[in-house]
Design a protein around this nucleic acid. Structure first.
Lengths: 269, 269
DNA sequence: CAATCTTTGTGCACGCGTTCACAAAGGCAT
DNA sequence: ATGCCTTTGTGAACGCGTGCACAAAGATTG
């Protein structure tokens, strides 16, 4: 998962659990596919299979939205598509800006899944003057100087940050000051934002690291013959060893610098 | 969160809770930054602030790894970096392949966060013959025909799927058949994989939809004057209304959509 | 060496999320 | 109408994750 909010103890908004909200888009995607195939109704069992979840969970999720099913029959596909879309706020048009038009930013600008679901890329913004005016995904990249103007003129409330880590915090502050209240952050940094602003983060390398953890565990279980003691790295499929030296406990003993207690712990790029 | 495993009820691997594993990369990033600034030790309070989590949670997380702290002092940065790296399996070299070299695939190939953390992009693979041989991120793109050979020769156990949704399932099957046991999926599809294979997914549009939900809720609370009954869409910052009609129980009867799973999910208008 | 101060490690309680299992509800056939 | 069959909606139990609060442990100072 590449997700995490900033503080706020899992707000249960209007009685709909956060976990349920996170699954609604999944259901919506499955339902849309059914709708395109003109399937009129679907049972919780079928839909759950298509969405990759437990059917009881799905029924409970839908129960938070209301009683939209018919016992003995299932759910009306079109009706459910509309209800979920409305609940998620996708019946509105959401203008978004993407800040940081590097490889990732360009990929996001070209990503079809946004416009397909009610999101409209209102502007692409980059700090590099050389990028300004260049066409990306059919739009002209604009310079950071105009960030505030763009936000206000387009009524943007959702911003996507795809800048390097070092610039992310500052960009988020400018976005928020200009009126943005929701941020999707692709930069590998912890953003600190005021209350009332939602941040979701997607960190590509974190996902890979979690996979590596499980991968290592799998490899370790297979070769559960030797190496039961932590300290010896168990080889996976065909991994070239690149082990870090044990870093003796007394490594940082010599230098007895200042108390070091109150350095603001800033993330250097 | 853009994450979800496929079945398997949240395996608590070797006593380390899944939630903790998901946070370890976060701590590692913060610790690495401290290490680069030559900070010798750090308290749970400071590190928690830098990682954006609760300090008690951080201490409990670390307690699953062992007692690596010193009471009255804190944690030795270098030592902790090593311990977490080892726990996550980052002391090994993990060759990965990226399948689907479109905008996103290219962005991933260029992403520095991979190689910085023990992951090595072993190959870029695309189904388009016109892509074969083209240089991306300093490598030459290879054709899907050679997928199995590449996997085996490089001992790849982690695959990244950045193809269109329609191709993802088939690609995953080929990857798995060739020996891959962990998949990071960027395609907006539910992959069905055999037991023993881990899948994590990152879905960009899902994250935006979750933000939209909260955004709508925020806008609704502000203007909590009228419109308390679901059915009337509450306006946000400056949203051009694009509301879908209630979609009478029988809307899409004529059109027969293609069998392809994920053509842009256009809202029925 | 004793007293004090800092910070870890964890027992405990609480709340959210998941899952089971079943009664209620509706369709359908006879 | 009546009874059967299917599927929803949900009460209840359970397990995981979180956060509080504090005792234990070590450093540090006099």
């Amino acid at each position: 998962m590449a997700t995490g909010r900033t503080h706020r103890p899992a707000t249960r908004s209007r009685g709909i659990p956060e976990a349920t909200v996170a699954r609604l888009p999944l259901y919506l995607r499955a339902l849309t596919a059914l709708s395109e195939r003109s399937v009129p109704t679907v049972s919780s069992e079928e839909l759950a299979a298509a969405a990759g979840v437990n059917s009881a969970k799905l029924r409970k999720d839908f129960s938070y939205l209301g009683s939209y099913g018919t016992r003995g029959v299932g759910y009306d596909v079109e009706y459910l598509v509309y209800q979920i879309s409305r609940e998620l706020g996708l019946t509105q048009d959401w203008p978004v800006v993407i800040v940081g038009i590097g490889n990732l930013g360009a990929a996001l600008a070209n990503y079809g899944g946004f416009s397909a679901r009610g999101f409209r890329v209102a502007a692409l913004i980059d700090a590099d003057p050389a990028m300004a005016g260049k066409p990306v995904a059919g739009m002209s990249v604009q310079h950071t100087d105009d960030l505030e103007k763009i936000i206000e003129e387009n009524g943007v409330s959702i911003g996507v940050i795809a800048t390097p880590a070092g610039a992310a915090q500052q960009v988020s502050e400018r976005l928020i000051a200009a009126g943005v209240t929701s941020i999707l952050n692709f930069a590998p940094t912890v953003l600190s934002v005021p209350d009332g602003v939602d941040v979701r983060k997607v960190d590509l390398s974190i996902e890979l690291q979690i996979l590596a953890f499980h991968e290592q565990r799998k490899a370790g279980e297979e070769a559960a013959a030797a190496a039961s003691e932590p300290g010896s790295v168990v080889g996976g499929a065909a991994p070239a060893a690149a082990v870090v030296p044990p870093a003796g406990r007394a490594a940082a003993e010599a230098r007895k610098g200042g108390p070091e207690g109150d350095v603001p712990a800033v993330m250097p790029a």
